[in-house]
């Protein structure tokens, strides 16, 4: 595993200085400490996971039993919620998954490209009004979405873009997620400047410095951006609610809410089942994506 890169075994230093007995005791202690760490981590993980497990358990029960029976244990496994939930709405649930996927992939590409370009300018270039622009960028994430969404809707409605994915993807292509710009700025500032200055002396232009020197070093930041964009866009309800109207364009969060109703009752079984289904892609992306975080070191550490 690449993780081990960071702590290479150092066989050569120990024995010359320490006695055998001390060494054995040390390794015993180390094993004890490792075990303790696992126990603590597993305990913490169980606390973290209880609600998630409860949701999975609930999705395997008939709706009318969910709130009568608080335990995690199942008498028998009932998969009918999954079957019902998948086909309960006007389109099969796969349509909503696909729509969400389109929006998410567009958003990730948009954020990766546009935010890293902007971050390079803010972190490495010296230009007029830099501090002011940077402040404006920060202010743009301080304004709550609820008051800008109405004027945004006006614009997109004029352009006939409502009910398309454009209002959801275009802003990402145009680096409006200042969170990620700032994140990448901080990462780039953590990369020694000598590297790009060396490249500049070799005659590289900014585009090459950015693409060939910095980008490879920013893999952890890019992976973070991709993962977060995935998760946040995947679970974003409000903007998708406002901008998408036709059921065939609905995304997963909209579809899941379609099981809920306060006055006539929520169909919890299918709702939990589809919530679990919608968690799977995110969980997988995280499992795979965090390997990229790890691969990041191979590049950084290898230099």
């Amino acid at each position: 595993m690449t993780t081990e890169l960071r702590t290479p075994p150092r066989v050569s230093e120990g024995p010359s200085r320490r006695s055998d007995r001390a060494l054995r005791r040390a390794s015993g202690e180390a094993r004890g400490r490792r075990l303790l760490r696992h126990v603590l981590l597993i305990l913490a993980a169980m606390v973290m996971l209880y609600p998630v497990l409860w949701m999975v358990a609930a999705s395997l029960r008939p709706t009318d039993e969910i709130f009568r029976d608080p335990s995690l244990l199942l008498d028998d496994i009932d998969l009918s919620n999954y079957a019902d939930g998948w086909s309960a709405l006007s389109h099969p649930f796969s349509v909503y998954l696909l729509n969400s996927m389109i929006v998410v992939i567009g958003s990730i590409l948009g954020n990766l490209v546009s935010c890293s370009l902007a971050a390079y300018a803010f972190a490495r270039l010296d230009f007029r009004g830099k501090r002011v622009w940077f402040a404006i960028m920060l202010v743009s994430i301080m304004l709550p979405v609820h008051v800008v969404i109405v004027p945004q809707y006006f614009i997109y409605s004029e352009l006939h873009w409502v009910n398309t994915f454009i209002p959801l993807i275009l802003p990402k292509l145009l680096a409006t997620d200042a969170f990620f710009i700032f994140l990448m700025v901080q990462f780039i500032r953590g990369i020694p400047r000598q590297l790009d200055e060396a490249a500049r002396i070799d005659g590289c232009g900014h585009l090459r410095i950015f693409a060939q020197v910095l980008l490879p070093l920013m893999v952890p930041a890019l992976a973070t951006t991709a993962i977060f964009t995935f998760i946040w866009v995947w679970s974003d309800f409000f903007t998708q609610l406002i901008f998408l109207t036709k059921p065939e364009k609905y995304t997963v969060p909209l579809a899941i809410r379609a099981f809920m109703d306060v006055s006539s009752g929520t169909n919890w079984g299918p709702m939990f089942a589809m919530s679990v289904v919608s968690l799977i892609p995110v969980f997988l992306v995280f499992l795979l994506g965090q390997r990229f975080l790890v691969r990041g070191i191979a590049t950084t550490g290898g230099k």
Binding site: L117, P151, I155, L170, I181
Partner: peptide, 28 residues
């Protein structure tokens, strides 16, 4: 100063600021 390069790198962001962010902000 690298004004020209900087503005090029910031082009998408400027466009976003103008079309997506600024107008709704001023409207609000």
């Amino acid at each position: 100063r690298d004004n020209r390069a900087a503005y090029l790198f910031l082009l998408p962001w400027f466009a976003g600021l103008l079309f997506v962010t600024a107008v709704p902000m001023l409207a609000s």
